[in-house]
Deep mutational scan, measured.
Amino acid sequence: TIEDAIKKLLKLAQKGQPYTFGDFTVTSEEEAKKLAKWLKKQL
């Protein structure tokens, strides 16, 4: 689910690992949080 993807994304971001989700490449926890907010709006 999208919720699971968001959780995984935040965990990876906390470890400092870049994470690619579709067109987004997230390289920081701050970016992960922005992406998570955006994804929730898409639901």
Rank of each mutant, 00 (worst) to 15 (best):
T1E: 05
T1R: 10
I2Q: 02
I2K: 01
I2G: 01
I2E: 01
I2S: 01
I2P: 02
E3A: 10
E3Y: 14
E3M: 14
E3H: 11
E3Q: 13
E3K: 11
D4R: 13
A5V: 14
A5T: 10
I6M: 06
I6F: 07
I6E: 00
K7Q: 07
K7S: 07
K8R: 08
K8C: 15
L9F: 11
L9D: 00
L9P: 00
L10C: 11
L10R: 02
L10G: 01
L10K: 02
K11C: 14
K11Y: 13
K11V: 10
L12I: 06
L12V: 04
L12M: 09
A13R: 06
A13F: 13
A13G: 06
A13L: 13
A13Y: 07
Q14G: 10
Q14N: 09
Q14S: 11
K15G: 07
G16A: 06
G16S: 05
G16Q: 05
G16E: 04
G16H: 06
G16R: 05
Q17N: 09
Q17C: 15
Q17L: 15
P18H: 08
P18Y: 10
P18T: 05
P18R: 06
P18G: 07
Y19G: 07
Y19H: 04
Y19T: 05
T20Q: 08
T20L: 13
T20W: 13
T20M: 08
T20P: 11
T20I: 10
F21W: 13
F21Y: 06
F21H: 02
F21V: 05
F21E: 02
G22W: 15
G22R: 03
G22Y: 14
G22P: 05
G22V: 12
D23F: 15
D23N: 11
F24P: 09
F24K: 01
F24S: 03
F24I: 08
T25I: 14
V26A: 06
V26T: 04
V26K: 04
V26P: 03
T27D: 05
T27R: 06
S28Y: 06
S28A: 04
S28K: 02
E29C: 15
E29V: 13
E31N: 05
E31I: 12
A32M: 12
A32H: 03
A32W: 13
K33Q: 08
K33R: 13
K33V: 10
K33C: 15
K33A: 08
K34I: 07
K34C: 15
L35S: 00
L35I: 04
L35P: 00
A36V: 13
A36T: 04
A36S: 04
K37T: 10
K37Q: 11
K37P: 00
K37N: 08
K37E: 12
W38M: 03
W38S: 01
W38Q: 01
K40H: 13
K40S: 11
K40L: 14
K41L: 09
K41Y: 12
K41P: 01
Q42H: 07
Q42Y: 10
Q42A: 11
L43S: 03
L43P: 01
